[in-house]
Every structure is written in C-alpha cells, then in structure tokens.
Simulated assay, not measured.
Amino acid sequence: MRVLVRGAGIIGLAVAEELLLRGHRVRVVDPAPCSGASGVAAGMLAPAAEASWAAPGVLDLGLRGLALWPGYAERLGVPLAAAGTVLVARDGRDLVEARRQAALLAEHGIEAVPLDPAALAQVEPRLTSRAAGGVLLPGDRSVDPRAVLAALLERVEVDGVDAGVDARVEHDVEVLATGCSLRAPYSHLVRPVRGEAVRLRSDDPPSCVVRGWVFGEPVYLVPRASGEVVVGATVEEHDEPAVPTAGGVRRLLAAATELLPGLDRAAVVEVAARDRPGSPDDLPLVGPTHDPGVVLAAGHFRHGVLLAPLTALLVADLLEGADPDPLTDPRRLLEEPCTTRP
C-alpha cells in the first residue's frame, strides 16, 4: 500500500519502519522530527510500575508492549536496561501506596517483591537510609528513547513539510501520529498533559530505575550507562505552552535528592517540558476511523515509548486486513457518521 504517515515521533517512526519492513511504500512528513514528547521521555518500559496510575486496560497493553521490546531493541541495535524498578516509600504513608501497588500486581500475577529498609539498601545502596521500605519489580526494563529515535531515523526517511497540511502525494491511507495536535475532525480526541523532566549527570547514579513517593510527591529516576539520570516527571493538565516551571523543577529535585542524597552533587545538564498526548479515557487511539482512508496512532499519554512496537504491529496488521484491537479502537470515541438521507 501507499501510506502517508503524519508525525515523526517514536510512534510515527515505529509505524513507518514496520510498514517498510513489510514492503509497503511509505512517506513520513513532519517539519520537526523527534521534537515532541519522545525526545525527552525517560524510556521506562514499566507496565508494572505504572499500574496504579494507568487507566484500566493499559496494564494489559503495556505487558504486551514490554514482551516485544527485547527483540525490538536487538533489531534496532539499542541497549535495553534490565535491572528492574525499585519502588521506594519515604515514610509510612508512602509505604501504604507501595504496598497497594504490590497488591494490585499480585492480582495480575506480576512479580513484586516487598522490601524492608535493610533489603532496600541491599538492592540499591545509594538510597536514603531513612526510607520506610519498598517493592522490587524485577520484570521492568528501560531504554534510551533518543537512541531509539536515532536508530529509527537511520531506517526511515522523513520529509520536513508541515505534517498538518496536504502533502500532495498519492496515498491509499494516512496514519495520523501527530501527538497532541490531531487534525480535524479528530482534534478533540487528544489533550495536552504537560510533563517536566530534569537530566542530571552523576558519577554515582543508581543501578536501576527508582520510582518513589516522598511525603506523597511521586518521582522517578532513570539511569543511563553514561552516568546521566533522568528525573521526572510532573503531570499537569493545562492550556498553556509546555515550558518548565520553577515549581515543577523544584519539586522534582527535592524529591529526587531526598531519595538519593548523592544527587546533590550531580550536574544539571537539561531541563525540559513537553506535552503528552492524552485521550479522553487515557487509552491509546490506535486503529480505524469512520473514514477508510484515515488510521489513528495517537493518544498514548505516558506510554508512547513502551507501546511503540506494539502500535507499529497493530497499525500494520490493520492495513493488511486484521481486526482492530478493541482496547485501542478509536471508534469507541467517535460518533457514527450519518448515512441516511432526509
């Protein structure tokens, strides 16, 4: 098929790469490739850690996406960190949240190992000695999204035209993967949810992903092999441009250094904010519309990196005749077109 993909974030590029592998003719258009949420994402492949924050159904999608990542990372030639996630509770009230998370995961048969303060110190000795306890999620993974984007850009050519206008190219179907700015009549299906993140460089980073609550404030720390640590991320519904705020950065750094005091000596190398594309029910919008020439690949909210390879398969399978996934079918939120005449 001749496929026009609008948007060159991790979702659009992953879809395009999968379609190219299957022999389709693909054109990707985006005036600013990789400039959205993908470029600043932390890259947690952590459906277990996200379970209590996610909409119903996202855990199932996330586990399916995680299962694809080892093979996907190997094909792209990017490293996959496999040290798991440690959920850390700073005080007793935070520990209630950690235990609630562990109980939720147990209901789904997902391994979650309770840790008292002594066991927590053995798993991650850089953590504060004042932590009340935590939970180890050994099945979680992480990846550097910037490395993934670079690998995809080596495989997919991007035309730097405005992704929101007619690209004036013959195509059988177009895939809309433009993040928070879907064109009409689909623009109401996504909303911007700002996330702020801080990148640090440390000579003593944590050995695994650390997610925690610090007196009720959620925070995560994702280490890279280079010594970089991504600290994030705020979640704010807003109508303003996505820019870092003093309050958001202060909260992130205060929570991060409370959990890992050694980060006080880390260098700040980047502060950024981007809009995540949220959907009305916080489930992705991957599948057909009532227009047979338009497919959506949008609305991934906090899970774009995790769900990129799964989204690519869902879109490619759909274009080759498969049924849409009922969890992600955008038509659940679209009105049926009027087909009767007056």
Rank of each mutant, 00 (worst) to 15 (best):
140 D>C: 11
140 D>T: 06
142 S>A: 14
142 S>E: 11
145 P>L: 00
145 P>H: 02
145 P>F: 01
146 R>T: 12
148 V>A: 02
148 V>L: 07
150 A>E: 13
150 A>S: 14
151 A>H: 13
151 A>T: 15
151 A>Y: 14
153 L>I: 10
153 L>Q: 14
154 E>G: 12
154 E>A: 08
154 E>N: 07
154 E>M: 02
154 E>S: 09
155 R>M: 01
156 V>T: 09
157 E>V: 08
158 V>Y: 15
158 V>W: 15
163 A>K: 14
165 V>W: 06
167 A>R: 04
168 R>N: 15
168 R>L: 14
169 V>A: 12
172 D>A: 15
173 V>D: 04
173 V>P: 01
173 V>G: 04
175 V>T: 09
178 T>W: 07
179 G>W: 04
181 S>E: 09
181 S>G: 10
182 L>Q: 06
183 R>E: 05
184 A>S: 13
184 A>F: 08
187 S>L: 04
188 H>W: 06
189 L>Y: 03
192 P>A: 14
193 V>L: 12
194 R>E: 12
195 G>E: 13
195 G>C: 06
196 E>L: 00
196 E>S: 01
196 E>H: 01
197 A>Q: 08
197 A>R: 10
197 A>F: 04
197 A>S: 08
199 R>M: 02
199 R>V: 14
201 R>K: 10
201 R>C: 03
204 D>S: 15
206 P>C: 09
207 S>K: 08
209 V>M: 05
210 V>T: 03
212 G>S: 10
